[in-house]
Nucleic acid binder design. Structure first.
Lengths: 202, 202
DNA sequence: ACAGTCATGATACGGCTGTATCATGACTGG
DNA sequence: CCAGTCATGATACAGCCGTATCATGACTGT
């Protein structure tokens, strides 16, 4: 007889944690050898599990990659939140902390941003690229709000878009080895200094 | 008997033009379906030639991709040069024209920048990523020189690095559909306006 | 006219890919 | 204690990948 109401407690292993573990393996591979090297078998080996396990928790590769993308976004978000929480709530210090947190300054952030960049490039040509957009727009609005709270002249929304695009560019320049993380932070600071300087305007 | 001095005129077909034709096929594929879809067979089909031909002109896939990368850089350079040549030599108009030319504003530039981005991401994790760097540094020096010629306050080199990182970020934001090409141009203009505004400084 | 190289075609090969199938312990509720 | 689901392992399969090989016209300098 078929159980129509099986209220199953996952028991045994924590699926979320396993997925987390496998996703971390994907990130490590993507950051070291590139996302194109992240085959199902490689991921399984890197995570120390069998191929079947990866298939079990993520039925298809697309599903795995989507989960990894969400995982990366969440990691970046946590990073930003933590950096912001340690700062006073002044709009200027908030923006400095929040945007700096997005730069690849240490090994962990470098891995995250690198994997994110690889994934981002893939989504540019796949016909289902929207998901990252809402996140980006929310971030833009958040930054714009703070720019508005500060009394900068000019459109806060414009300033926010510029600052975020600059952060993206700085991320890439660090990943490419053109700047160090510290240099990128310095450049971002320089830009924010100029953006916040209100020159004799009315 | 072996000819030690065969001064062979390639005759028949122009190798350079064939390579150009095949490289264009790679760019089209990369821009529409992603660089990972650019297999040798797909490239051959897109270029309307046989697989053997692609192998003939580029012995290996690495060689093909390297050639495509150079081709893209050259295309971007030509684009910038042309835009600059049409402008008066004022440092400000020069920078506006040069940097705007790098943004994906029409279909051609969109294809080029998209393919370039895909290739760039690949080089981030491959152990031979330097080639693009010298080009980037040369560009940075060029922009810094113009910033120096204009009488902006602050370090010209810093301003140049910021402007170029901003351009990279704007490129990506357009490719991701976050901004239109026109919006990106407006944002870049806004930034340059602010960078060139010399506020009551000595 | 002939030998040699260029240019191109057809096809084969081993390897890796994502996914599916079969099997089997481990633990569950009834 | 037994039937069923969970969780995991081993392995198979079809397809595409990059590359290599064999073959063959077309044209060359001598």
């Amino acid at each position: 007889m078929i159980r129509l109401y099986h209220d199953w407690v996952p028991t045994k292993v924590d699926h979320e944690e396993r997925r987390h573990q496998i996703a971390e393996a994907v990130v490590r591979i993507a950051a070291s050898r590139g996302l194109q090297a992240a085959s199902m078998r490689e991921v399984a080996a890197e995570a120390g599990v069998s191929l079947r396990l990866v298939q079990y928790y993520f039925h298809t590769k697309q599903e795995l990659l989507a989960w990894v993308l969400a995982y990366l976004g969440q990691q970046l978000g946590r990073r930003m939140t933590r950096a912001v929480a340690a700062q006073p709530a002044s709009p200027r210090t908030f923006l400095y902390a929040a945007l700096t947190a997005l730069l690849p300054t240490d090994e962990e952030s470098r891995r995250i941003v690198l994997a994110y960049a690889a994934h981002f490039t893939l989504t540019l040509t796949d016909p289902d690229q929207e998901p990252g957009l809402s996140y980006a727009n929310a971030l833009r609005d958040l930054v714009a709000e703070r720019f508005g709270q500060a009394r900068v002249n000019g459109d806060p929304s414009t300033k926010a878009a510029i600052a975020l695009a600059l952060v993206s560019g700085l991320q890439l320049s660090v990943l490419a080895g053109q700047h160090t993380g510290e240099e990128a932070v310095a450049l971002l600071t320089s830009h924010l200094d100029e953006a916040f300087r209100t020159p004799g305007a009315a």
